[in-house]
Design a binder for these strands. Structure first.
Lengths: 206, 206
DNA sequence: TTGATAATCAGGGAAAACCCTTAAAAATTA
DNA sequence: TAATTTTTAAGGGTTTTCCCTGATTATCAA
């Protein structure tokens, strides 16, 4: 199937390259644009898919995504950027994008993604999946080593249990639990319990 | 290629099932075990791959993994459990496991994974990858929508700032910051600040 | 313009967290 | 066995969080 496609990117080279790939395979590139304002002005033009960069001169693809979907809720927006930054991708998806590809993707991935997206599937670049998986697995950096008791208590803290509740659960004195909490904060260089949990998540300890 | 395999699991049905699959395809199951102690006693038996459950009667697969690798660092340990709990998987991998499969995996996945693992690759059950990806993307249930001020303050809390510090930073009254904290806890159904941060990470809000 | 939502702030009190020192079993490791 | 680490625990004090009620001012959409 051949589709009507719009491209929003402020890098002429990227626009040209993507356009060539799409045209070569019979798709119609009905508009290209280098700014959010301009792209919104073209929102009346019917398209099936929009490829949108994240960083644009007058805004970002994330807000554009939300806006264009409020005008035309049937269009499939695919984030198209060189950033594999998680927060960009998350926000793009949250704002309604159905896919996110990296600019270094090869032709076949772009073409496959068009088919998948039009079939109602969500598409995330496999490279991003790998990065996400590694983050989840905490392969990054894991210098602090916690004792068995410490990680046990850490998990209970993350579950929202107070010192007293943890003490009751583990049949320990409140003072003992307090000692472990202090050690956790010391080891992980945390200022308080909220910070401790944030650090623990960052280091993949939870 | 056919390999020598050990199985550590305290569920006889699982052991039987896995063993049948492996034997049917020509692999050798050189030992099976239902406890960590017993499995360690069999550590002298040369194996290529060990399938290990997470929860065992006398310990857990995570510590077993570490121990067996200190004895035989060339063995490939594959976590094999019905838990898709992230922390188990993370810890298993951190302790040297090269793979993690779910018990509901079908035969072909198990067999493919054996080949991949022996080829030096890491194997994670695709179902887990999906869960991880969804967590990363915050797709799960992202029903809570925070206001601008709330997410601003949430981030500062995660950075370890106290109510007073946040108030100073944002030129607000302590009471205002307290109000926002209360609303955050209410919205995210958190019992205290530590829990709030944990929930926020879970939902991909940080 | 009129609700609804968001953001601001107050007082007061109970509970929990935080910080300090000190120390003795218990378990591991060398 | 000796040395080290872990786990246990106390006393006592300061600070912060947490919870309640109540209220005024912006902001934004219908």
């Amino acid at each position: 199937m051949k589709y009507r496609i719009g491209i929003l990117d402020d890098h002429p080279v990227v626009v040209k390259g993507l356009q060539d790939v799409l045209l070569k395979h019979g798709h119609q590139v009905v508009w290209t644009s280098n700014s959010v304002t301009d792209a919104m002005a073209k929102s009346a033009i019917q398209v099936d898919i929009i490829f949108s960069d994240i960083q644009l001169p007058d805004g970002d693809g994330i807000h554009y995504c939300k806006e264009i979907l409020s005008v035309n809720k049937h269009v499939k927006v695919i984030g198209f950027s060189s950033f594999s930054d998680g927060s960009f991708i998350r926000n793009m998806i949250r704002n309604g994008a159905v896919g996110y590809l990296l600019k270094e993707s090869d032709e076949s991935l772009v073409l496959e993604s068009i088919e998948k997206v039009m079939a109602g599937e969500q598409v995330i670049d496999p490279k991003i999946k790998e990065v996400f998986l590694e983050t989840q697995l905490g392969i990054k950096k894991n210098d602090v080593s916690l004792t068995r008791r410490e990680s046990e208590i850490l998990k209970l803290i993350a579950d929202g249990l107070s010192t007293k509740e943890i003490a009751d659960r583990l049949f320990l004195s409140i003072k003992t639990v307090e000692a472990h909490r202090s050690n956790l904060m010391l080891k992980m260089d945390a200022k308080n319990m909220a910070h401790l949990i944030a650090v623990a998540f960052d280091r993949g300890l939870i």
